[in-house]
């Protein structure tokens, strides 16, 4: 039984601590995520949600703890800061399993939509140009932007940019997709179009998805599990039904009350 669950766990974070100087962002955080699970991280600003995604994307290191992604150890650092370091090749191998979509899109402004999507498959996955372009067309189709294939990012709306960014991340065929507040920079209408794409995507693929969001209704629809965090710690987690309808902790109740009243 233990072995079986172990093999299904695609992300394991154990006793992860992350500090910026005097500020502690994550405190002894334990998170396990099953393969193909859809998880939404919610909580007030500064609770460390985005930091978790950035650690999994290898954009941020940790101070202590253990992180294992798809059976490969990314960090194993003891509290006295000793521990194994990971080679460049290993980081690159882990990175290949993870894709990320950012709040501010971060498209490459000097490249067309097509090249934004094909650049990494061609240069990192070593696909042929034809293969990469064919695949890019499919992903653009998926996000509903085939007609923008030759446009440049500056010619797109925020919602369109974010959908291209999703297609770009998908083109690397990651096992795990991370979405970092991807609708926070968009007005409600454009946010809705991005969320619709994401909902379709969640339905169509068995990719593991981890998203940080402030859109509670969307989290409710999208996720198998909601994790509510505050000050670098998990306050409460469970199914959307449990968290939104029957929260156990007083802090969860007050947070949801404030957030849901505001929208």
């Amino acid at each position: 039984m233990a072995i079986e669950t172990q093999s299904n766990r695609i992300i394991q974070m154990q006793k992860v601590c992350k500090r910026y100087g005097a500020l502690t962002v994550l405190q002894n955080l334990d998170i396990d995520i099953e393969s193909s699970e859809k998880v939404a991280l919610i909580g007030p600003s500064g609770s460390g949600k985005s930091t978790i995604l950035r650690i999994l994307m290898t954009l941020e290191s940790i101070d202590s703890g253990r992180v294992v992604i798809d059976g490969e150890s990314l960090y194993d650092i003891h509290e006295d800061s000793t521990g194994s370091s990971v080679s460049k090749q290993q980081v690159s191998r882990i990175r290949a399993k993870v894709g990320m979509v950012f709040q501010s899109f971060n498209l490459f402004p000097h490249m067309s939509v097509l090249r934004n999507i094909t650049e990494a498959p061609i240069h990192v996955l070593k696909l042929s140009r034809e293969e990469a372009e064919q695949q890019a067309v499919e992903f653009l189709d998926l996000v509903g932007l085939q007609d923008k294939i030759n446009a440049y990012p500056a010619q797109l709306s925020g919602g369109q940019k974010q959908r291209v960014a999703i297609a770009r991340a998908l083109a690397m065929q990651p096992k795990i997709m991370l979405f970092d507040e991807i609708t926070s920079a968009l007005d409600p209408e454009l946010a809705a179009e991005v969320l619709l794409v994401l909902k379709n995507l969640a339905r169509k693929t068995d990719r593991t998805m981890l998203m940080v969001t402030h859109q509670m209704h969307f989290a409710q629809e999208f996720a198998d599990r909601i994790i509510f965090m505050e000050q670098g710690k998990i306050v409460e987690q469970g199914s959307p039904e449990k968290i939104f309808n029957h929260p156990q902790k007083e802090r969860t109740r007050s947070f949801l009350k404030t957030v849901l009243e505001a929208t």
């Binding site: 994307m57 954009l59 990175r95 990320m100 950012f102 971060n106 240069h123 990192v124 770009r168 991340a169």
Partner: peptide
């Protein structure tokens, strides 16, 4: 800096 990060997330080498 976000451009470096986007490239890192796509697993580009430093040189590329």
């Amino acid at each position: 800096k976000a451009q470096w990060e986007a490239a890192e997330a796509l697993n580009f080498s430093k040189g590329h």
